[in-house]
Simulated scan of single mutants.
Amino acid sequence: MAAGRTRSSEGAASARVKSVEVTVQILDVLSEASGAVRVTDLARQLDMTKARVSRHLQTLTNLGLVDRAREGEGYVFGRKLLKFGRAAVYRSNIVEISRPFITDLHNATGHTALLSTPTRGGAMVVLSVNSQFEPGIMIHPGAVLSLPESPAARLIYYFEKKKPTPPRVVENLKRYAVDFEANVRGNGLGGIAAPLFEPDGLIAATVSIILSSALLIPDPDPELLESVKATARAIQDEYAEGVVSPLMPPQGA
């Protein structure tokens, strides 16, 4: 009897593990989709029967991890999962490590200092210290910096190997080890951004400052460049020391 109970327990444990694996696979598909995903599409992508996928979706819906799309067929992330996602972003290790360094960058330069992480369509601000001397440059966590004006978004786009490569990114990285942009025709604001990398070399975040474009023309202020680079180096040393993406061009190359 004892042996039978052991085998039964092992089988139940294996089934629970498999159920977790399927859940992660479903959430992976939903995270990569641009809209609601139908059961038929999920079943095809995961090589499972519609009935099996439907059972998992029902459980995930009951738990609040996925929701039915409001219009048409399909499923999307649930509100609880979005809550977990926000907590994961804003309380992540890199945010906690970066917090004092971003404050120091703001204090050293006097400009709005940001930490941004990759998101669909750009860079999402997850930490900000806004300048008190430049009214109008108030950027809060949750804001999305977009292409092509944002150097933070351009760096993420480049290091995620998306095409086409934003103009001047490689040139700026070769010459300065950062990207920058002066938006003289728009709001008159510009930015300087440096990348941070995960232990596996993928881009984790960007450090940046927002400032007047006048400080970037005809060339960026060397002290500002060094402040951004020094902050990025300090955070990188704490987060994943010595890691550099293979896509980072050599200085002066």
Score class of each variant (00 low, 15 high):
G142Q: 02
V66P: 08
H56N: 09
T109D: 03
V89D: 02
A108E: 05
A87C: 02
H111W: 10
Y90H: 11
S116I: 07
R70F: 03
R79Y: 05
L63Y: 04
E96D: 06
V39R: 08
G35N: 14
S131R: 10
L105Y: 00
V76N: 14
S150Y: 02
R68A: 14
T112A: 09
G121L: 13
G121T: 12
S116D: 06
G110P: 02
Q45L: 00
R68H: 13
S92K: 11
R44G: 12
G85E: 09
G122W: 06
D28I: 12
S34H: 15
R52I: 03
L65N: 12
A123N: 04
T40M: 01
P118F: 08
V129I: 11
H106G: 12
Q45C: 04
I26A: 12
L115I: 05
L46T: 02
V144C: 02
V89M: 13
A88V: 07
V89L: 13
L127C: 13
L65M: 13
N93R: 13
T119C: 15
R68Q: 15
R52Q: 06
T112G: 13
R52H: 07
V20A: 15
S31V: 12
D41Q: 06
D104E: 07
F101S: 15
D28H: 15
F101A: 11
S131K: 14
T117F: 01
G122F: 05
P141N: 01
F101T: 07
A69C: 00
F84M: 15
V37I: 09
R120G: 04
L145Q: 12
Q45M: 00
L65A: 13
A88T: 04
Y75F: 11
K18Q: 11
L127Q: 10
A108F: 05
L114S: 07
L42I: 05
R99S: 10
K83V: 09
R70I: 04
G121Q: 14
